[in-house]
Design a binder for these strands. Structure first.
Lengths: 254, 254
DNA sequence: AACACCGCGATTGTACACAATGGATGGTGG
DNA sequence: CCACCATCCATTGTGTACAATCGCGGTGTT
């Protein structure tokens, strides 16, 4: 999972072969965060050499991190052309949301059955962090923490494949929200999150699922996925044309 | 000792950088097939150097292929210890099947809505191939083709995230079937596949979902996932502990 | 004889060098 | 003046060398 990492790269360094193993995760997590918090705009080119320079590692590490990100759908890998931050089209966004409804419903039902008291406590803590972020005005961190809440919920469902899928969906959702969210109608979702936890703690499956579905509705309704987005968010609409022209058989993402 | 198997290298080698890009897929596909067709037993160690020799590529390529396979869940990557063929536990198998029911239901509903005539024709073709494999006694190929049928169905659902998830689930399911299937009660599933296609072609959503769920039941019932497996399939139960087993059966061609 | 420690071999992890690809650029011809 | 084409440059793809790590077997001690 993406823990809060150090200030950024201020790590051992040691020229080469420092902390083995975690290097990957550090780079991965930092790029991931940067994208979700919109410090990296959709369409931005992610040069291997530049990133290697920044993080003080070789391209080998960067390449692996980009590969992971591509598999999760937040980065687009174009053969021979490098990587860019993904910019989901409206159609892609719709597909992600459809899949998410499906998965969230199942996760909610399972979480009601399997969530432990400890997990519920952790969930409440996350909602607090989320609220703090928004009240602090840190929208990026808020979006990210909101996503991590849903990921934590997936863990409570105790189903490894679903967790993995949820991670991918949440990542993409966060990217979509960052890209399409209309206005700054505050992300009041943390309130819905709290109600959801209450229902889960009470082991009220029907209510929990109901709340989750409404939560999904609310997220949906905050986005400009309809026709209006054409005039409203021109950059987002066309950004996917700016970098990729060929429908290459990239196996990364079907 | 470094005998390179020819069947793979459709390319003239050309030292390096022949057909760039496809190298990955070739290696990936071959290992994948070998695992699903049980030519590589669960727990078998997958040495990077050995595989590189066999396929005539460097460890770089092998490593990427193993990484992909690990992400799909058919290979287990142990830091500093190398890769082994995954050997799903009974619990993991249950989780995969739970997730699959979920996804297959959704895919079926979507396929009923979106499948084109061409896709339906392709599905029928795949069922034919599958039947041929089983009648030819090629169980491994049959399992694989059966999986590919479900993957094709996912494509008809026109939802990229679901397709990606389904690929992972089908891979793991095939591995589980190969590992746990009881007796040799023939894989009659191709018959169920045909009925399913009929229902989809008739745009009968309820019937299609019903058939799919029964299909899942049948697959389930063929497996030894119950308590009896403890005594019945000792090797599978412990295989994840004896990964260092000697690869004495080197005669098995990849 | 059993346990613990230490060094060795094998294998993976990382960095780097070189080759190939694709886009950009400048020159030439219509 | 514009369009087309050949060359160049930047960036990615691949192979390979080297270093770190882990498991294992030998050796010494209690």
């Amino acid at each position: 999972m993406n823990e809060q990492l150090q200030p950024l790269k201020k790590q051992p360094r040691a020229g080469k072969a420092g902390r083995s193993g975690t290097q990957d995760d550090i780079v991965y997590a930092h790029i991931f965060e940067a994208i979700l918090e919109q410090r990296l705009a959709p369409g931005t080119k992610l040069s291997e050499e530049a990133l290697g320079e920044i993080f003080g590692v070789s391209r080998t590490i960067i390449r692996r991190a980009l590969s992971r990100l591509a598999h999760e759908g937040v980065v687009l890998l174009r053969p021979n052309r490098g990587a860019v931050v993904a910019s989901p089209s409206v159609e892609e966004a719709r597909q992600v949301f459809l899949a998410r409804r499906l998965v969230e419903r199942a996760i909610t039902e399972l979480a009601v059955q399997h969530a432990t008291a400890e997990q519920i406590a952790e969930l409440r803590q996350m909602v607090n962090d989320e609220r703090d972020s928004f009240s602090r005005g840190d929208r990026g961190a808020g979006i990210r923490l909101s996503g991590e809440f849903h990921l934590k919920l997936a863990e409570a469902a105790k189903n490894a494949p679903l967790i993995s899928f949820q991670r991918s969906l949440v990542s993409q959702t966060s990217l979509i929200i960052a890209q399409y969210e209309s206005g700054n109608r505050s992300h009041c979702s943390y309130d819905e999150h709290t109600q959801l936890i209450d229902a889960i703690e009470a082991r009220n499956g029907e209510l929990a699922v109901d709340l989750m579905m409404h939560h999904m509705d609310h997220i949906d309704s905050k986005l400009n996925l309809d026709e209006e987005s054409a005039s409203d968010d021109l950059h987002a609409v066309f950004s996917h044309l700016l970098q990729t022209k060929k429908p290459g058989r990239s196996t990364a993402k079907l």
